[in-house]
Design a protein around this nucleic acid. Structure first.
Lengths: 160, 160
DNA sequence: TCTAATTAGTTGAAAATGTCAATGATATTT
DNA sequence: AAATATCATTGACATTTTCAACTAATTAGA
């Protein structure tokens, strides 16, 4: 209620010029990413709560299901997280028996993460739900536009 | 050094199939936004350190420079932040004399935020620097692609 | 080989952020 | 006038981020 009432005068589309572009930062990549990320993760966290997961643990579980089993160090790099955060996330998943740590073969310092059967089952269901949430978030776009935006974001990421 | 050594085997482009798409979550909007936002804000925070700002305070300063002076409540909604966080950010900017709180005209409960002359000067310089950082981050894209991706992101945001 | 330097995972502490309920001052509604 | 609602603010509490240190294991150098 309040949100709409106070927000409308600023962001409303009651005249044609009314756009994000009016906002001084409305066209800043940083602003767009921050806001989309914030609202998006809230949404997917709600979705994932049903599975006892959050965006973070979900992504770690996904990596555990990957056939190319990355080390924790690689996970940290992939997810742009501190290695210590990975530890905590894995502890959580492990105590929920979705995941198992196995010692590395070449290098016994490292740990390889394996999803349990239960873990793979949960992941599969959670992934479907997350996919729906994503489609909802991209609801304003045509399927082609959605693919375009994701493809461009991937391109940016690969370059970095 | 280490990062490259450990990361390369996973994300390298030494064979053609090597892509983000290999990653189970490499095509997830949530992952893309999280990672781009994380790396992007680190970059812009480095850029903004020179001005004594961070991504957050920069965006609040930008709103203070806006001719349509939003209330703190509106700022919170615009930036997807809790009103209490806005308070802290403004306190910071105010003690740096970049910004002034003025009581609302219609409603004396609310505060209107005005940038000082110094604030507008700093904002103008900071904005230019942030613009460069953004162009650097989007370096992999052509100018048209960059405009496309931002325009699509704006579209998604408006719909939400 | 023996030693020194480096690396993977882990722990824990400190700083930053996010979330939420309560408060005093003001507006609005009844 | 009284009850209700809203705005900025405060303070409490949880979560996340950041960073330094520790161990066990590996690698590099003399």
């Amino acid at each position: 209620m309040t949100n709409e009432q106070t927000l409308v005068p600023v962001l409303a589309v009651d005249d044609d010029s009314s756009d994000l572009a009016e906002l001084p930062i409305g066209n800043d990549l940083g602003f767009l990413l921050a806001k989309l990320h914030a609202t998006g993760s809230q949404l997917t966290n709600v979705t994932l709560a049903e599975f006892g997961l959050k965006e973070r643990s979900f992504s770690v579980l996904a990596l555990a299901c990957w056939d190319r089993h990355p080390t924790q160090r690689e996970m940290a790099a992939l997810l742009t997280l501190d290695p210590s955060q990975i530890v905590a996330l894995i502890d959580e998943l492990e105590s929920a028996q979705l995941v198992e740590r196995k010692p590395g073969i070449m290098d016994r310092r490292q740990r390889i993460l394996l999803a349990t059967a239960k873990g793979r089952r949960v992941y599969s269901d959670a992934r479907a739900a997350v996919g729906e949430t994503e489609r909802a978030q991209l609801g304003a776009l045509t399927p082609e536009e959605a693919e375009t935006v994701k493809s461009l974001l991937r391109k940016v990421l690969l370059h970095t």
